[in-house]
Design a protein around this nucleic acid. Structure first.
Lengths: 118, 118
DNA sequence: ACCTTGATTAGATGTCTGCCAAAATAGGCG
DNA sequence: CGCCTATTTTGGCAGACATCTAATCAAGGT
């Protein structure tokens, strides 16, 4: 999702316009499911940077098509990429995408401190 | 949402367990709607730290009940707090909650660089 | 060619979500 | 108290979503 590039601004520093919100929301929506969050985390935290779908399927009590569906959602929002090598398909997390979303939610240090104190 | 406290770990550093994912997902889901994203941004970026509902309603082509509904979702996930003072209700962003989610998505600097390069 | 394993797509179904109109609640004021 | 404004709750509906089964596609091996 290259069209997120101009959204790399904390939402706390100025109001998101309708357009930016429209482009960012799908990414957060993708993260809004526990299975997808875990999938992404499994992929992103895996040594070597990539994970085979077969390894992911085993980690859940869900059918392969369901996992595949969730992976597709993550892929469509640009949070992961997929590459087939022979029989297997490997997924990788897109650090840029993750970083961008992290930045959007980031809070200036002293403001965070205020929040914690409150 | 105090029970998010032990989720303050980047999703990229180790796999989220089912329990953590279950607790984090609702927050991301709340952010997964463009209207709520804008509402949160309007609230979080507002000078003085708080915004009256009446000001929020005017910013959208939506009815008051719809805005109220979205604010409720944000409130239930702990992203904002509401306080009534006289006739009006004021909403504030919870910087802690925002910061936590930002941390969960954060990517170590060099890993982010790799991602950008790829 | 055929069969097997890995993965995705298609179709069906029950649940959830976003929206609105109407009704209810909360405060302030004459 | 009765009225007015601000906000939330309720009820209902159309569209979206998570999940499953069955079918299909991809790559390898026999």
């Amino acid at each position: 999702m290259r069209d997120l590039d101009d959204c790399r601004v904390p939402l706390v520093s100025e109001p998101l316009n309708a357009d930016q919100a429209e482009r960012l929301a799908p990414s957060f929506k993708a993260l809004g499911d526990p299975v997808r969050l875990r999938l992404l985390s499994l992929i992103a935290s895996h040594a070597g940077g990539e994970v085979c779908v077969c390894d992911l399927t085993d980690a859940f009590d869900l059918t392969a098509p369901t996992i595949s569906h969730h992976l597709k959602v993550l892929k469509e929002t640009g949070l992961v990429t997929a590459e087939r090598r022979g029989t297997w398909v490997y997924y990788r997390a897109r650090a840029e995408a993750l970083g961008l979303l992290s930045t959007v939610l980031a809070v200036p240090r002293f403001a965070a401190a205020q929040g914690t104190a409150a």
